[in-house]
């Protein structure tokens, strides 16, 4: 196996040719999104439009075309997710404060009755969780978290009370500690890199998946009252 054919010393020609076009389209997209932010009057819809701006940012980062760029995409993605989460909560709270508590109470919701929800959802969520466990790391956490989320969101979990999930969030805090410990071990003594790697990979999957699952249980209580 010739090493030079595996990893080149310079960025290949095709990626260099891609770069100007990608940047120009990203700038145009960003300009469209920003003009939408300027025009739009509704507060919530501004959040949706800003997603376009975030996509433009992802394209600008991705256009670099190295392994480093791929490693930099993941933090950008996570930052945008985190900000939209916090901002949406603040928006909902603000609307409650503004309109007061005495909005007209609506009747109880009917549970949604669709065939696909009963048959396909448990299988899909199980597959997502299994595949996410194989992946580990942040990617696996996101996949498994999406699986848990869709099950809690739609299915009818039996035997999982709210307290159980509160305890589970405590477990996620412990997992975070485990993950940090793995990192420190890695830096302090790189000879133990295997243990450190497994600690960090396992810790972050538990943390991310359980956090998303907590989000799911909050959603379920509000949807299917």
């Amino acid at each position: 196996m010739d090493p030079s054919s595996v990893v080149p010393n310079f960025v290949p020609q095709i990626i260099t040719n891609f770069y100007p076009l990608a940047i120009i389209i990203a700038i145009l997209t960003a300009a469209i999104g920003l003009s939408g932010v300027i025009i739009e009057r509704d507060d919530f819809q501004k959040i949706l439009i800003i997603q376009i701006v975030t996509y433009a940012m992802l394209i600008i980062v991705a256009a670099v075309g190295t392994d480093l760029a791929e490693a930099l995409i993941l933090p950008g993605l996570v930052v945008s997710l985190a900000e939209i989460l916090a901002v949406t909560e603040v928006l909902i709270f603000r609307e409650y404060i503004k309109r007061g508590i005495s909005y007209p109470r609506l009747k109880e919701y009917k549970p949604i009755d669709m065939e696909v929800l009963k048959t396909a959802i448990p299988m899909t969520s199980l597959l997502c969780v299994v595949y996410g466990t194989i992946l580990t790391g942040f990617t696996g956490g996101a996949v498994a978290g999406a699986g848990i989320l869709i099950y809690l969101f739609i299915g009818e979990p039996k035997g999982l009370s709210h307290d159980f999930w509160e305890e589970m969030s405590g477990v996620s805090g412990l997992a975070w500690c485990l993950w940090l410990l793995g990192f420190l071990l890695y830096f302090l003594n790189p000879r133990l890199w295997l243990v450190a790697l497994f600690m960090s990979g396992g810790g972050i999957i538990v943390k991310v998946a359980l956090k998303f699952g907590l989000l799911g249980i909050l959603n379920r209580e509000e949807f299917n009252k």
Binding site: I47, L77, L149, N219
Partner: peptide
């Protein structure tokens, strides 16, 4: 960037859930 694409695709439903809840 297949790994980044996988993460992006699986973060999307979570994003939709947050928005639809709002």
């Amino acid at each position: 960037y297949t790994l980044a694409m996988l993460t992006f695709l699986s973060v999307n439903p979570i994003l939709y859930i947050i928005m639809i809840r709002a």
